[in-house]
Design a protein around this nucleic acid. Sequence first.
DNA 1: TATTTTAGTGAACACTGTTCACTTTTCGAA
DNA 2: TTCGAAAAGTGAACAGTGTTCACTAAAATA
Lengths: 231, 231
Amino acid sequence: MDSDYTLEQTPATRRRNKVREAILAAAERMFAKEGESGLSIRRLAEEIDYSPSAIYKYFGSKEELLEELKDSFFERLLDQVDRVSAANMNFHDRARACVTTYVSTATARPHHYAAAFSSIPTREELAARRQLSWDDFIATPKGQAFKILVDLVEEGQALGVFDPALEPIKSAKSIWASSHGLALLMIHMPILPDVQPCPTQTDGDFVAYHADIVMRGLAVPADPPHKNGTR
Amino acid sequence: MDSDYTLEQTPATRRRNKVREAILAAAERMFAKEGESGLSIRRLAEEIDYSPSAIYKYFGSKEELLEELKDSFFERLLDQVDRVSAANMNFHDRARACVTTYVSTATARPHHYAAAFSSIPTREELAARRQLSWDDFIATPKGQAFKILVDLVEEGQALGVFDPALEPIKSAKSIWASSHGLALLMIHMPILPDVQPCPTQTDGDFVAYHADIVMRGLAVPADPPHKNGTR
DNA sequence: TATTTTAGTGAACACTGTTCACTTTTCGAA
DNA sequence: TTCGAAAAGTGAACAGTGTTCACTAAAATA
């Protein structure tokens, strides 16, 4: 136990943190380039001139290490979107910017983003997670990202831009799904944008295009929902 | 080489196909339950009472085997959506059903769907894929799925339901992104639907809700795009 | 200075996908 | 039917993985 404030690090802990950071930096580099399969503990150890078992003095397992990479990435992502959501723009541009920022930050580090949503919970894990309350969820990074969207929808409704009949939480989930989907489609199927006959279109443009369509989906409808269009 | 029609299988090839199917069936079972990490060649061999090396007489590699599982899943998925897209319903319901069918088929086999979009192409692979033409793309299963959406958008525009100013290909990509995103969000973050204060909402309901919002995004807009909503 | 805690290592374990020389079985033609 | 070739299947081995653990060397503490 440290006797006084632990804020001032002893040389020992400073050295230790330095090694830890070196491990993380090398892991980050390898992971960004080759993804989870390209990051092996042994190659990582070789990269930083340590023995493989040394890494286990800093991280409990490879999964823990990866978790840290993913988490810090998602926090960067959250930070970017948070900043944009508080920017000084008119509502439409701001809302669109939230989506485009999210997608472009995600696609800038494809392996990180894909890995951040890679785990498929089992039945038991699912049951366990059901326990956590709304407040607990909102405290997690992903919960905070979600809250940004909920607030955005509510603001849009207050401004009369979004349909007041929509439920903010559901709408936020819809926006997230649409953004998430575009990001992953661009990551895993980057052919799509280029197959179109008019190759003047770039990736970034389509992201904005998609964002606008998403916004339009929440807008005040033209008239009572169509019931025509029968075959 | 076979002298006559190869349609009538010899006992040898029939036996061979039987073993091949047995391998695929066991692999399918293991993969559906535990995903890619839970499917090992050795455990698979044990499951069907063969030696690990025997499997390599039927599949060039584990990746090839997985490819076959993923492909056949995606073809089932495509088939489902294709059937729905040709069903006898009014346009709105049919379009919505395409999305909901896609999502629920995807989430019914989470590991399959996630794996079908798991590969992240490298620079070189990307350059290679850029070569393939629109016609080549449309011939692939994913291209066919995409084409269903393009046709759907064009039909909606012809019916006056969708905004004629939208480009069908871009709109189709937008729909796919939104559907893809919801499917993966439900697979990887199944907490989301349940955190809402009103727990009467079930998963399936939200899929339809989301599908409706997606449709609204393509609908004829209420009036010339809003320019208000300034902060 | 003596002792205890920490940092780091090398060898081992239990896995993995994959290959290859080898045996056994099956099949088609002489 | 017999003989040779092709196919089916195997066991051992290789190279790789994550992880553990007894062990040494160094640093921090008393």
